[in-house]
């Protein structure tokens, strides 16, 4: 069908009733109004001061390190999992996939409680063992923050990479094999290369999700300033004591998310089509 006929197409099915437009406008306003409200409350002239002051800058720095750590954990664990889900036929694959998705819909607090049940020093499934054998305590520690963030971020990465792997045309890998590339080389020189857009998108979403993690972190790793108090936790506390700093930090998180979204759309999703 040419462009001309689509633009001129008229019929009962193609007409949009007025109330739909009104509803759509309301939905958009519903989503944007809080963001406008946030931006209006930001004290722009003192923005830099607010986010470089003691506890705010500490929280930002901690968030940066832990979210990057969590993204690396998600990447290392998530790519093999996505590969198996996308390319290995086994019984119960749909069940495994549903389990992988669980942290996405699970209330983060419940995730935190579950993490305590697994890695808690006393009473955790393997937490006591980790402490006895390696002297490793995850609860109320920085590594605990990383674990909590990775727990909620992993599914986002797995979904993106799995769908990416499904769209990788196996002919390229076959062709590489026919040119003498071993399985390992095929993965590094062909599969990974074709997977890159999905991988970048998955990393971006997982990182953004890790950066914003609140419920699981506060439950599992606690809220210790300078050690486990990430930016979202700091925002929550500062809202009482120093609202200006809270709004400034919120703005930083919002800005990062916008940048992530824009990067993904323009750089990667646009190029694929």
């Amino acid at each position: 069908m040419t462009r001309k006929t689509t633009s001129k197409r008229r019929g009962v099915g193609s007409e949009t009733p007025v109330f739909v437009f009104v509803g759509a406008a309301c939905a958009l306003a519903f989503l944007l109004l809080p963001l406008v409200g946030l931006l209006k409350r930001v004290a722009w002239s003192r923005l830099i001061d607010s986010i470089t002051s003691g506890s705010a800058s500490q929280a930002l720095r901690l968030s940066l390190y832990t979210s990057i750590g969590a993204t690396i954990v998600a990447l290392v664990l998530g790519v093999p999992l996505a590969w198996v889900l996308a390319r290995v036929d086994f019984r119960g694959r749909s069940i495994v996939r549903a389990l992988v998705m669980l942290p996405m819909v699970l209330p983060p607090v419940v995730g935190g409680v579950a993490l305590l049940g697994a890695y808690g020093k006393s009473g955790g499934l393997i937490g006591g063992w980790l402490y006895d054998v390696f002297g490793l305590q995850l609860t109320f520690s920085r590594s605990g923050v990383v674990i909590a963030e990775a727990f909620v971020a992993l599914p986002f990465l797995v979904i993106a990479v799995e769908s990416g792997l499904r769209s990788v045309d196996p002919r390229f890998e076959e062709s590489a094999a026919a040119m003498g590339a071993s399985g390992m080389r095929r993965f590094w020189t062909v599969t990974l290369r074709l997977l890159m857009p999905s991988l970048v998108a998955g990393v971006a979403v997982a990182w953004a999700r890790a950066l914003g993690e609140f419920g699981a972190t506060i439950t599992f790793a606690g809220n210790i300033e300078g050690r486990t108090q990430t930016t979202p936790l700091a925002v929550y506390l500062l809202l009482e004591s120093d609202p200006e700093a809270a709004y400034a930090l919120s703005f930083v998180l919002l800005a990062v998310c916008v940048v992530v979204l824009v990067t993904m759309r323009d750089r990667w999703m646009g190029r694929r089509s």
Partner: peptide, 20 residues
């Protein structure tokens, strides 16, 4: 013997050059 150890010179029907 898997494909990559057969010393092949192969052209596929739809001639897949690596796009990247």
């Amino acid at each position: 013997v898997p494909a990559h150890r057969r010393g092949l010179g192969m052209v596929f029907q739809d001639n897949v050059l690596m796009p990247f």
